[in-house]
Design a protein around this nucleic acid. Structure first.
Length: 471
RNA sequence: GGCCCUAUCGUCUAGCCUGGUUCAGGACGCAGGGUUCUCAUCCCUGUAACUCGGGUUCAAAUCCCGAUGGGGCCGCCA
């Protein structure tokens, strides 16, 4: 007998009720690594059964973010297009007596819940409508009473093996008769998931730990429908600095926010992958292909991990520095307005190693393109130099630079001419600081010679004179 | 409150399965130093952790039990 291996099929199933959240993106990533590692399929399923809250804009955001990350899916589904399938199985459960109509109103249920909270008891549905007679049901229906559909939860232990955590056990009597559909054409989460995972032949369900308590409900449903059971793996969740689930109040949480700020996909992928997963070595920089190659679920961490933005920034710097000048210029384009592409590239090259996020390029390089700089004249003063001394320095620079030929106006040549001049004192800063301050109007910037080269002779002299005039 | 998950430097983690080679390694951060003014890059140095209590053992970060801490979930959301 040949041992035929089941095809590996995983899914990422976001609901379009918000932009793609980092936590979800990481789950998508892990699913992708897992599938691609063994040549399986990665499926994207939009869970838009909640028509009230789902929007096409959010769906677009999710799709764009996944694409940006490079997570290409092999199959695509949308739950709202699969209503008939859910209705079919819903009918079956109802017919088999494994599900029932519940006529309790939301107000009644809310009151019941509140009573349970006050009494400090278990918060589960009382089962009031569980054993309604045919007549009662017909009567309620005839009266036009609204109903939802609940699953008749059997009282038993539910066990499953979590690929990350090992065996997990729940007591279904503590779960109660949970809701599975609002009506025949509106399935609810746990039910739709079970139907889809089965129909789509999902082999592994890899999702956030916040779903771990949904797992027994889904298993109960699988058993009731005679479905095979996928393998489960629950990922640790991403935490904010206060150790609670990463959410809006912690700041930016969606992938698109980070795209906008100028983080690279390589950065986010590397960062999220190593947040909760580690292959055991001392390697810190991982490309998508390396992650696919090295990924395995048993190296996934069990505890939640705090999202550490300083590390994200560091990594982004690493990846920015790896870019070619052409690539970087292209990436920076959305953050700049200047049209002169050659000058732009030169300006960017001076700031490549200083960049943490692409968005910073705007402020860092804008001084190149302005006609007049605005800064306090005190900026021109180096240490304990006097106004007069700085004036002298600027005059001297003006004089020397005037004589430099246009052809020789480059970093190397300027350095060759000015450095001996700077060396004359015992402190190079006496010449270099006023020069750089005059050219950039900033206390921190790239070096004076390279800035002068990008600026060109005319603009350089102009700025030296403007500075001189301020003193 | 109930159920479930979890526990190594401030943070992400290696080591734990297969106890001794570890007075616990790396990275980020932070501090100090070096490199043609500043900032950044780069390099060097430093900083800092096995939650606690029992047990098993010649020996425990590593195995077992308990406590404590942290987190998640308890919707006609997903």
């Amino acid at each position: 007998m040949t041992n035929e291996l089941k095809e590996i099929r995983v899914r990422f199933a976001p609901s379009p009720t918000g932009k793609l959240h980092l936590g979800n993106a990481r789950a998508a990533l892990f699913n992708f690594f897992f599938a691609k590692h063994i040549g399986g399929k990665f499926i994207l399923r939009i869970e838009d059964t909640d028509l009230e809250r789902s929007t096409l804009e959010f769906e677009d955001d999710i799709i764009e973010s996944l694409t940006w990350l490079g997570l290409e899916w092999d199959e695509f589904y949308r739950q709202s297009a699969r209503i008939e399938t859910y209705a079919k199985y819903l009918g079956k459960l109802l017919n088999d007596g494994k599900a029932y109509r519940c006529f309790c109103t939301e107000e009644e249920l809310e009151k019941e819940r509140q009573g349970q909270i006050d009494g400090g008891s278990l918060q589960i549905y009382s089962g009031k409508c569980r054993n309604l007679s045919e007549e009662e049901i017909k009567k309620n229906l005839a009266e036009g009473k609204k109903s939802i559909i609940r699953f008749k939860s059997p009282s038993q232990k539910v066990r499953f093996v979590d690929l990350i955590r090992g065996e997990v056990e729940f007591d279904s009597s503590l779960i109660g008769d949970f809701s599975i559909a609002k009506d025949l054409v509106t399935p609810l989460y746990n039910f739709a998931v079970v139907i889809d995972d089965f129909e789509m032949k999902i082999s592994h369900v890899i999702r956030g730990e916040d779903h771990i308590s949904n797992t027994p409900k889904q298993i109960l449903l699988q058993e009731a429908l005679n479905f095979s059971q996928p393998k489960y793996a629950h990922l640790p969740i991403m935490l904010g600095p206060d150790r609670t689930k990463l959410s809006k109040r912690h700041g930016d949480t969606s992938v698109s926010d980070y795209i906008q700020q100028g983080y690279l996909p390589e950065t986010l992928i590397n960062f999220m992958a190593l947040l909760g997963w580690n292959p055991g070595g001392e390697k810190e920089i991982y490309s998508m292909n390396e992650l696919i190659k090295d990924f395995s679920l048993d190296k996934v961490q069990k505890g939640g991990a705090i999202f550490n933005i300083q590390r994200l920034d560091y990594l982004n710097g690493v990846y920015i520095r790896q870019k070619s000048l052409d690539e970087l210029a292209e990436l920076c384009r959305p953050y700049l307005t200047t049209t002169d592409k050659e000058q732009l590239k030169k300006a960017i090259s001076l700031y490549q190693e200083r960049l943490k996020k692409l968005s910073e390029i705007t402020e860092l390089t804008e001084f190149f393109f302005k006609d007049a700089l605005e800064y306090d004249k005190g900026l021109l003063i180096w240490k304990d130099m006097t106004n007069g001394e700085v004036k002298e320095v600027l005059d001297k620079l003006d004089k020397i630079l005037c004589d430099v030929e246009d052809k020789a106006w480059n970093k190397a040549k300027l350095e060759e001419i000015l450095m001996p001049e700077a060396e004359k004192g015992n402190d190079r800063g006496r010449l270099l600081w006023p020069l750089r301050a005059a050219l950039t109007g900033k206390k921190a910037s790239a070096g004076p010679f390279e800035v002068a080269e990008v600026l060109g002779k005319e603009k350089t002299l102009d700025r030296i004179r403007q500075a001189r005039a301020m003193l």
